[in-house]
């Protein structure tokens, strides 16, 4: 692990939201949105983070950036000069500096752009905040950025409502690129878009990665999209990473966690001739307020036994940097998606 250049390393990150009741706002419990998540991202790769709604993937993304203050855990970020910095305890001034290097793309292209600013102001804002450019130079750079993301430079005086969803997402991407970041956390960047527009944005993200040597943390609930963009995949369930490994290995060759297996089999296949053996999970995702003891997945797992309901498995390496949090990871033979030519 040490030999590779890890741009981001998250260790045992936790975020508990207190639940307050009554007049005196007494804390009656915690929503364990992120409950001890650990993973790492290599420089230049795309790590896909998949999970169902409510599994804490968005909270995790925001905790890394400290848009939400994490309760516990460490986030190590490697700067371009090789220096490693721990983000969770960083002073606000130093953090502001780092925000040039880690940027975010948001899910909802309608809510994430200030409706009262022009495109020029939106895209130029990070440069203004970090004092990177002003006046004519700022304008030129905004123009260049707009062209990079496939918009016309003369659109810069317009307001966000004049653009379609796909174009707005492009503006959001231009804004993220404005401060020359190295790591981009993309939180469901295409889920609000139509299929045909989604493809345009995915392609754009890929081109940008090649050109600008970006690293992505790609958060999504759409398994096919994640498979398409990711080098490696992290599967999240109830605030924890349950499986982390090479995208091909996890999807096709050998998923090692029963949840991953079920998740994969549930994807609707765009081919009516291939009916998959479907593993239908019982019930719904439990609430993160009262998560089950032991392995969090055991009430829905078809392989579970008593050990699973008592002891919580840890994330361990089953070889070739494939990490799984399951007691029986090495015994089970699970099926991924079958490959056809």
């Amino acid at each position: 692990m040490a030999t590779e250049s890890l741009i981001l390393e998250v260790q045992n990150l936790k975020k508990y939201f207190p639940m307050a009741r009554g007049f005196f706002r007494k804390t009656v419990g915690y929503v364990k949105a992120v409950d001890g998540a650990s993973f790492f991202i290599r420089e230049g790769e795309t790590l896909g983070l998949v999970g169902e709604s409510g599994c804490g993937k968005t909270t995790l993304g925001r905790c890394i950036l400290r848009l939400i203050e994490p309760t516990e855990g460490e986030v190590w970020f490697q700067r371009s000069n090789g220096e490693k910095i721990e983000l969770t305890k960083l002073h606000p001034e130093a953090l502001k500096n780092l925000r040039r290097e880690i940027r975010m793309i948001f899910q909802d292209p309608y809510a994430s752009l200030d409706p009262r600013l022009t495109v020029m102001e939106i895209v130029g804002e990070p440069m203004k905040i970090h004092g990177m450019a002003k006046g004519r130079e700022l304008e030129d750079r905004v123009k260049r950025l707009l062209e990079v993301v496939g918009l016309k430079a003369q659109h810069m005086r317009r307001y966000p409502y004049e653009f379609s969803g796909g174009q707005r997402q492009r503006i959001g991407i231009a804004r993220a690129l404005a401060s020359d970041p190295r790591l981009i956390i993309a939180d469901e960047p295409v889920s609000a878009l139509d299929v045909s527009v989604q493809a345009q944005v995915l392609n754009l993200l890929e081109e940008l990665q090649e050109e600008l040597h970006l690293t992505y943390l790609f958060i999504s609930h759409d398994l096919s999209v994640v498979q398409h963009v990711s080098d490696r995949v992290a599967v999240m369930y109830l605030g924890k990473i349950v499986e982390l490994g090479n995208a091909t290995t996890v999807y096709y060759a050998a998923p090692k966690h029963p949840y991953t297996e079920a998740l994969l089999s549930a994807i609707p296949q765009a081919d009516p001739q291939r009916k998959l053996k479907r593993i239908l999970l019982k019930g719904d995702v439990p609430s993160p307020i009262q998560s089950p003891p032991g392995c969090k997945f055991h009430p829905r797992c078809r392989y579970a036994d008593t050990l699973c309901s008592q002891e919580e498995p840890t994330l361990k390496d089953v070889g070739d940097h494939h990490y799984v949090a399951c007691h029986y990871a090495e015994q089970l033979h699970l099926e991924g998606v079958e490959l056809y030519d």
């Binding site: 299929v195 493809a199 392609n203 398409h228 963009v229």
Partner: peptide, 22 residues
């Protein structure tokens, strides 16, 4: 334009896109 799991693993194929917007 739809990313789908039938794609050959490992080699990332570019998605074909429909130009322009609705």
């Amino acid at each position: 334009s739809m990313p789908c799991l039938t794609a050959q693993a490992g080699c990332r194929r570019k998605l074909e896109i429909i130009k322009g917007d609705i």
